[in-house]
Design a protein around this nucleic acid. Structure first.
Lengths: 350, 350
DNA sequence: ACGAACACGTGTATGC
DNA sequence: GCATACACGTGTTCGT
């Protein structure tokens, strides 16, 4: 039923996750052991099976506890009586339950424990004072019980998802990073792994740059929260002076000045017929598409392009080749052209 | 003190991990030995004060804790002593707690709720017999209470550690990977990030290699039929697919026969709503432009894009986000769409 | 009100 | 035993 169906749309890691299966296998064992207690558990298990492993493959899943919990619970639904009132008490209604125990010695059990899960339901729960609630709670009772179940299910899914992600990320790194299978260590290992990867990346880039003599555009997004701080050295256009553009969310900037307004942080460097462009602008609708098209119109062929999105800002760093028919010859001309292009994009995006 | 110190030995991120050292100085000081020595829980309570504030430095916060925190929440205060007896009930000794509650009206609160799921056993509740256990339990009671507290503390530390790791790994990636602060999404984002980093690494290495071998480009990368031979692992589409379908063990390539002609080497991987595309095709007129446009039409937003040109081949490696209206949901569907898109581009380029 | 996400204390399995 | 780690159901809190 709807309750247990999984909410998370995405999951789906398909391929990986094999190690996770191991875990489940274990639980399977547990499940089997406990079986004998429940003659009919199998159907319950099968029923729940679909919803719990939403993501496909896995099959067995979950431990026995949950299985029979559910079963019990569902079984009990038929007779919802009052017991829930006492047991579910949980949140705001905690008081009620307390009182109940005070007065009625036999109502005791609930407490117990367990109320927990579904069992509490069957425990009788005393009658006492709460009758006035009766009227209202009578309807709410199962209502409430229902939403408790959804709560449980949701929570269960959350955990499951978590584990799947962990399994995935674990499968992505070399096992040396995970020594203990512990889930904290997994993400601890992931931390190391990421750091290692970034370091390697940096190394390679430096090598390449050294090799190439000329600074290149391909640097990945860097870890610092504001990666773009040192990214520009001498931009032809800078937002610093013209903050209002981004500030007010872009009014009519069109052709206000004879001196064109900076649409973005733009820096162009050139060597022979190759140019490097760095453009930091805010996200605009279809901007990338239009930039690519616009550059092509300017007889600039894109050799290398890197797009990095951070929040509402996008950093395009690209290296282009000035084709034979290109009218532009200096960095300033190119910067002007790009700024103008961005201006048109802004206009059209309004 | 020992109780709260963090137990996890592994953390230690070696070289990089300097930041963690800050958090709890994991005193190796014999945690085990000392803890059970506690005569009574009050010390324990004081102890807990420090460890509970998980968020770094800070100190005090949550003082009310101790075992009676529950009480505080619910406002149902009562003399703490007896309630502990009841509350601890937990594990095997669940019975005790039951009895205690029966007798002492004011100790009420704890009860409930949690006791956890499994204890079905006690539900029975009958009152009678449990008191004589006293003699034995009398000693064990606080003993047991004590170790319950350590359990709680340990568990609390576990969670805390988890969160710290999550915070760390989150701080390592660009915020675009974490849209929701949700802890599942964090590690989901980490998955994407790791994949992206690896991809970039591969790209750079390939570039470097190509750069090195520039002179003899003809047979330079000829050993593999395709220049970026090792770049793809399980491509949905492959240029050599005609004969080699079986070659790449591919569960995913299964339906290769009735599948449209491969326009390029295409590999799609997916996590949540993020997909990584690798496309290796020959250069075609305006191809990049059309790819960008085409993806936008498919409700795929380009988050990261990397273009590498080698000779007459181009490698696009991009990470895209599936927007809400996107019809595509599986890697195969995306691969199909991309292949189809390339087909149209090829047509138009003729 | 309602849902989504967490923190909590507990039960329980696994390893020494 | 006892330490560790996970799953569970629940309470609570925070956006909407």
């Amino acid at each position: 039923m709807a309750l247990d169906t999984v909410i998370y749309p995405q999951d789906q890691f398909g391929v990986w996750g094999y190690d996770y299966l191991i875990q489940e296998e274990k639980s399977l064992c547990g499940f089997l052991e406990s079986n004998n207690l429940f003659p009919n558990h199998e159907q319950a298990a099968s029923v729940h099976a679909n919803n719990w492993d939403y993501c496909s493959s896995s099959s067995v899943m979950q431990n026995h506890n949950s299985c029979y919990d559910m079963k019990d619970h569902w079984g009990t639904i038929s007779s919802p009586d009052d017991c829930t009132g006492g047991g579910s008490g949980g949140g705001g209604g905690g008081d009620q339950m307390i009182s109940s125990e005070l007065e009625s010695p036999h109502c005791n059990m609930m407490m117990e424990s367990h109320v927990g899960a579904a069992l509490t339901t069957n425990t009788v729960a005393s009658a006492g004072r709460r009758k006035r609630r009766r009227t209202k709670s009578g309807k709410n009772k199962e209502e409430l019980e229902n939403q408790r179940m959804t709560h449980i299910t949701v929570e269960r899914n959350r955990r499951k998802q978590m584990n799947e992600y962990l399994a995935v990320i674990r499968s992505l790194m070399p096992p040396s990073y995970v020594q203990r299978g512990d889930q904290a260590s997994i993400i601890g290992g992931a931390i190391n792994f990421v750091k290692e990867l970034e370091q390697q990346l940096q190394t390679l880039e430096v090598q390449k740059r050294a090799m190439h003599q000329q600074p290149n555009s391909v640097n990945g997004y860097s870890p610092p929260p504001l990666p773009f701080g040192e990214f520009f050295t001498f931009p032809q256009y800078s937002m610093k002076s013209a903050n209002e553009v981004s500030g007010n969310g872009g009014g009519s900037v069109a052709v206000a000045d004879n001196r064109p307004l900076a649409m973005a942080e733009i820096e162009v460097t050139m060597v022979e017929s190759h140019a490097n462009l760095k453009i930091l602008s805010k996200k605009r609708y279809r901007q990338l598409l239009k930039i690519v098209a616009g550059l092509q119109c300017l007889w600039l062929t894109i050799l290398h392009l890197n797009v990095t999105t951070v929040d509402q800002m996008v950093l395009y760093s690209l290296s282009v080749k000035l084709e034979d028919g290109c009218q532009l010859s200096t960095v300033d001309e190119i910067a002007d052209a790009v700024n103008c292009l961005l201006g048109r994009i802004e206009e059209e995006a309004l």
